[in-house]
Design a protein around this nucleic acid. Sequence first.
DNA 1: TTGATTCATTGCAATATTACGATAGACTAT
DNA 2: ATAGTCTATCGTAATATTGCAATGAATCAA
Lengths: 110, 110
Amino acid sequence: MGLTKTEIFSEQQNEVAVFAKAFAHPSRVAILQHLFKMDTCVCGDLVIEIGLAQPTISQHLKELKQLGLIKGNIEGTSVCYCIDLENWNKMKKVLNEFFDQDIAEKGNCC
Amino acid sequence: MGLTKTEIFSEQQNEVAVFAKAFAHPSRVAILQHLFKMDTCVCGDLVIEIGLAQPTISQHLKELKQLGLIKGNIEGTSVCYCIDLENWNKMKKVLNEFFDQDIAEKGNCC
DNA sequence: TTGATTCATTGCAATATTACGATAGACTAT
DNA sequence: ATAGTCTATCGTAATATTGCAATGAATCAA
């Protein structure tokens, strides 16, 4: 059906999934990497850098912004996008807690 | 179009995206958490635990298996699934390298 | 063999995601 | 005002993902 049954999962499980979705596409990975590399970022940069159409980039930026991973300030006619470190670190914490579950002394059955 | 243009991205960017996709759905997050919790895991367990239909769970398990994050051994009539630690650690390394890009002394323009 | 159990596969329906052309809105420069 | 630049939004087309009923394949128990 394509309809995720979010209500049957825990809040943490949904949070991991929502954050992971941000990186689940190479366009967004590339956008974030570029934002890390640069000091000041404009959408136009990204269109040239990444090689997708401007509306496509704009759409990906919107998703990242809604997740809180980036923020954008209007600067004259262009928009300055950059990483929102506070939320970025929160995301890292949530995902790393998931990655680092207790796996130490487990009888490996397989 | 829904067709990801993987060819315009770097290998690393695609790798991050592919791994992230594994966690981009709460079902798979829940499955992995359950596999961590248990010592010996069977698909039937997961159907009861998670509350989705058996074919749905089976499909998610297949994806995780194809990615190499879990492995499954046939054990009589049931199948023993568990985390593949080697690939799990590789995934952690790939994603953490992405998460921990140089962000230290950046002039925050926003 | 027959029936029960367990998991995989197939086929389908519905929603989600990705991409882009066209267009609109906001600002700048002339 | 007018033209040019930059970004957002709308509408649309195509692919991807999710979920499940039905079915199949393999094993075990009697």
